[in-house]
Design a protein around this nucleic acid. Structure first.
Lengths: 213, 213
DNA sequence: GAGATATTAGCACGACCGTTCGTGCAGTTT
DNA sequence: AAACTGCACGAACGGTCGTGCTAATATCTC
């Protein structure tokens, strides 16, 4: 089952798909998934339009593949690095800081890929919207789980509403990304950093917890 | 100077422009300013493509006019209604509630026009981005001013960082809009309402202020 | 080697894009 | 009544879009 293919032909195909998607996530993070055009990708990468098209089968499938590729990049850049951090308040904080670093470093050239693309598709029913809604829920759950671990560890007050807190944290992160990109300004990130600590401290068992320094 | 034109020809022209922009803000709030096409607007409104084009001169000018039209609608729907409320904490709260009502009522069919369109253009330098940055700043300043009045009135603690607080409030509002539209769910609005009160209470001189009931 | 198979190229299609042009028509001015 | 102004129209322009075909080109199996 699912033998790791060694067929050179399909390996070559996967390689071009990878190259196409790399370019695609970059374009989409700046101009949106609608601005992805098969012809443009082909020209940029020195491929034929039909070649790119054949690799995905349809425009919508290209968009969905782009979302999946972005999801992987996001997970690697934001979530994976904090698995080192011990569960608890420290990890919750680290997760948020990791997100800020991801936005700040322009892992995607247009800032957060999902901010750009979700705003584009949130009011348009369809497979793309559904995929993005799944990603949003997944990220929300990741934050909630980190907070739940902190509560279990006793570093977060028992009465805390985790969903509300996660909502607030994510709201601050996205606002920082949005304003920083729009105004080409670093201040929003600093504001977000302060507010993050403020929000977590307000819910912490020990307001002087070193994880909130 | 600036005599209110009575020329029937230009009045007719302004009327069609108005009709076009009404449709345009609706489309843009759902699909973005790039999805505005002159041909589509013409077909939808039973006009000729060249007629619509002539009314604006270029695609970009149409986009800019659409942003201006949306700005007016936003001001009328969100800012104007709260001028009744006496300045102070109550007005700051009312301003936020007014925004939530504006998003909830789908004054623009796709949720907040500026959320959709700012995400689309925030990483694309140009006249449209500049116009949107101006709107964002204007809205931010409106919130800060409401908070400043509250501080002057003594209902907000003197040490409060108004910019940080405004940032947090706006972050919560936008997150509510985003999630509510994406998941077709009312809960984000309720969450935002709770968090708004929480944030304002934390900065209030009197945490039991009736304006935060 | 030959033959099967998967990826890429070349080309053509219909549709729509923003834009330009010449024209007609309604309203204003003289 | 004649001359002028401003809006909207229809037709056409060169481009780009997504998407089908059919061939050519690698790579695998035998």
């Amino acid at each position: 089952m699912a033998a790791p293919t060694t067929d050179g032909r399909v390996l070559r195909g996967e390689e071009t798909r990878r190259a196409v998607l790399h370019r695609a996530v970059g374009i989409a993070s700046v101009e949106g998934l609608d601005a992805l055009s098969i012809g443009r990708l082909a020209t940029d990468l020195g491929l034929s339009k039909s070649g790119v098209f054949a690799g995905f089968g349809s425009k919508e499938e290209l968009q969905l593949a782009t979302v999946r590729a972005a999801r992987r990049i996001f997970a690697d850049a934001v979530v994976t690095p904090v698995t080192d951090t011990p569960p608890g308040l420290a990890r919750a904080r680290a997760l948020c800081e990791s997100w800020l670093a991801y936005s700040r470093a322009r892992v995607f050239p247009g800032g957060c890929f999902f901010y750009e693309v979700t705003a584009e598709f949130d009011a348009r029913p369809g497979a793309v919207r559904d995929a993005l809604a799944g990603c949003a829920r997944e990220w929300h759950d990741t934050v909630v789980e980190a907070l739940a671990q902190a509560r279990t560890a006793g570093t977060l007050r028992p009465g805390t509403d985790l969903d509300d807190l996660a909502f607030a944290l994510i709201a601050v992160l996205e606002a920082a990304n949005s304003q920083a990109v729009l105004h080409e300004d670093d201040v929003p990130y600093q504001r977000a950093d302060r507010l993050l600590r403020h929000l977590l401290r307000a819910a912490a068992t020990d307001p002087a917890d070193p994880a909130l320094a």
